[in-house]
Simulated assay, not measured.
Amino acid sequence: MNYLYKGSQSQERLNALLSFGKSTSEDIKAALNDYLVRGISKTNAATLNGVPASNLTRALKRLEVVAGKIEKIKELDYRLR
Score class of each variant (00 low, 15 high):
51 V>A: 09
16 A>D: 13
73 I>S: 01
13 R>P: 08
29 K>I: 03
17 L>M: 06
78 Y>D: 05
14 L>F: 01
21 G>I: 04
70 I>C: 01
71 E>T: 06
51 V>K: 14
81 R>A: 03
77 D>C: 05
52 P>C: 11
4 L>E: 00
8 S>Y: 00
22 K>G: 11
54 S>C: 12
68 G>I: 00
1 M>S: 12
27 D>C: 12
23 S>P: 11
43 T>M: 15
59 A>C: 06
7 G>R: 09
53 A>Y: 14
56 L>R: 12
81 R>I: 07
13 R>C: 04
67 A>G: 03
11 Q>P: 14
36 L>F: 00
69 K>T: 08
22 K>F: 04
32 L>G: 01
26 E>H: 12
27 D>M: 13
22 K>L: 06
68 G>F: 02
59 A>L: 03
7 G>P: 07
25 S>W: 06
60 L>F: 06
42 K>C: 08
66 V>S: 00
81 R>C: 00
21 G>H: 03
75 E>M: 09
80 L>R: 10
61 K>V: 07
78 Y>S: 02
49 N>V: 07
42 K>L: 12
81 R>N: 06
81 R>M: 03
1 M>Y: 10
72 K>M: 07
32 L>Q: 03
2 N>R: 14
44 N>W: 08
36 L>G: 01
3 Y>R: 10
13 R>S: 10
7 G>D: 03
19 S>Y: 00
48 L>D: 13
27 D>Y: 15
76 L>R: 04
